[in-house]
Write a protein that binds this DNA or RNA. Structure first.
Lengths: 344, 344
DNA sequence: GTTAGCACTCGTTGCTTAAGAGTGCTAACT
DNA sequence: AGTTAGCACTCTTAAGCAACGAGTGCTAAC
């Protein structure tokens, strides 16, 4: 059943009011504050209909109405209009983000901090996933008598290197041969493929010394690949939730914070989300039914994809926050456009 | 004024009871539960004296007594006896810690998790400080046409390497010369010294190409040194505090969790603490008056020093927890005794 | 020095009452 | 048919109050 124009307006007014005041909104206050030219009784009837359709709920008989997840979904999809940031707001964000551009992890973490500061919610950032990155070349470099450096360079420009100690030293030639061997084998494959496949365990050679070297390098090679695949998750502004009425009971606060104790699970969920700005509301998040999540993707070098987002109660300013996050990703994309290849 | 034997016993009983039940303890219950052979009235008199001496406080007139920070301090210093863990407990810890010895950060993080699980408090670990580590040698390695790897090896065996891209390629010879230059300059100095001193900015040469190279390497060199000095802090079991009566009010919980939002500050405070098992109670921790902290140091390769600890309300089982933490450090020392030099 | 006895304090619990916000229904109005 | 006024009803919240209980502090006797 379609909603009438007036019902949409009333619903929007209720959402607006509830988001603002965090309290069930009654027919009288709607009629008073928003000029619909009708009496509270009429509003009441409409509200009753909206409730029947599942857009509103009742905490108890004699309380005002509260928007349901379905209402927020409707609002996000159809009703809300993206609020473009004012020049002043943009300038503020730009300045604050520009102040800290030293190191990659530092930079995005700083962005998360700023995001939580602006939204007054809990925010998080994730370093880019590199499982779609392909191997450009692999090189073993002699460092000193007992140390060899393993370097893996991805086509994205990312470089990882790990030092490994091996007891008897190998000649540069042997290292070069193995380097080329590995490179030939894996060039163009994604890190994921290389790790998933069994090839990494099969590689062998006819030459004795080479074989012994392979045995020593393999674990480090695998480990370095795994390290390259790891994403880091940073959370900021966790204590902000204490100022939100929704989490003013200990139980609620605890449930909320426990989400972040299960880091791996949370990380996985965020990784699964689609590109661009994604909003999930209440029920739509399994195991976080009382929260809404807004995430967005940013790009490094136009390729690797990281995530940034906020998490808060379903009652949040979706219009404002999506706009802000969108602007953040624009800024980050710009910042990481011409990034040089230094690792992490 | 010295406490009488009986006063000490009563104080100990009060501490024991309060730690157990988290409720002000009255004279009657002490007289009943612990057999002092005197009446509640006598206990009451002693309690009154203990209060005058600052060992007990009164929430309000008609409530029982609560141990003060001073009482806990006395308890920790003189009264408590270290509880050595049972073979079963030791075995449990050993098994759980052995299960995860892959990577350094992973291992200590796992230890923190276990520690918070056992103590039901919030725990943390810190990776070792390396500012007393001295430089063994520095080496620049050519990787490909546009990439050079900078490797810094510490006397502790720790190796850090960073790749840097430089536009025009330098010959292996030039890199070698610079490597030797740097090594000669900084060998034997601590990372801290090198960073603190101005030397790092002064280094220059007569040869033109070398100078241009130095200019390009310097920022990376400094940055890598800084990276080596960085300690990582991991916290586990934050949500445990919600089950502790002391933090059952939102305000208290918030105050507690805000400690961890100020990561840098917290890290600094932990770093300042002495070696071995250190207990600080309430007031003794500035800006965390309502908490007690127990930390201990663990060693890597018998040299580098990291920290592990718990934080909770002043009302905690000092005897048990110090023993557990001590055992943890023993285990960690053992684990990291023969560690190989792989970075981090 | 120890103890019993007792008045007193203070927080907690449970109960009642009143106020207030809001609904839902009905009957009247346009 | 849609809108509205009126009103009974529901439910939450706050305030007030009495009863209870745990515990102290003091005094006088042992």
């Amino acid at each position: 059943m379609k909603l009438s124009e007036r019902q949409l307006q009333i619903l929007q007014a209720i959402i607006y009011d509830y988001v603002e005041n965090a309290e069930p909104v009654g027919s009288r206050s709607i009629a008073k504050k928003y000029d619909f030219g009708v009496s509270p009784a009429t509003i009441r009837n409409e509200m009753s209909d909206l409730e029947d359709m599942g857009y509103l709920t009742h905490p108890h008989t004699s309380a005002g109405r509260v928007p349901s997840d379905k209402a927020y979904r409707l609002y996000v999809d159809d009703l809300m209009q993206k609020r473009s940031l004012s020049a002043k707001e943009k300038r503020f964000i730009n300045e604050r983000l520009a102040a800290n551009r030293d190191e990659f992890d530092q930079t995005i973490r700083h962005a998360a901090k700023l995001l939580s500061e602006i939204t007054q919610l809990t925010s998080f950032v994730m370093t880019p996933t590199t499982n779609q990155d392909t191997i450009s070349f692999v090189k073993l470099l002699p460092a000193d008598e007992e140390t060899v450096i393993l370097m893996i360079v991805g086509d994205s420009g990312r470089i990882m290197n790990t030092s490994l100690r091996i007891d008897n030293s190998y000649s540069k030639d042997v290292l070069d041969i193995l380097s080329k061997n590995i490179t030939v084998n894996y060039k163009g494959r994604t890190l994921d493929e290389v790790l998933q496949s069994e090839i990494v365990k099969e590689a062998s050679s006819d030459i004795e010394t080479l074989n012994s070297l392979i045995g020593k390098v393999r674990p480090t090679f695998i480990k370095t690949l795994e390290d390259m695949l790891d994403v880091n998750l940073y959370m900021e502004g966790m204590t902000n939730i204490f100022d939100i009425p929704e989490y003013s009971s200990i139980d609620k606060a605890k449930a909320f914070l426990e989400i972040f104790s299960k880091r791996e699970e949370f990380t996985r969920k965020i990784l699964e989300r689609g590109d661009g700005v994604v909003v999930t509301i209440g029920d739509e998040n399994d195991s976080m039914e009382d929260c809404s999540l807004i995430t967005a993707t940013y790009h490094v070098d136009g390729k690797l994809v990281g995530k940034i987002g906020v998490i808060g109660p379903t009652r949040m300013k979706y219009d404002e926050i999506t706009s802000i996050i969108e602007y953040f990703t624009k800024n980050l994309n710009e910042t990481f456009k011409l990034t040089d290849g230094k690792d992490k």
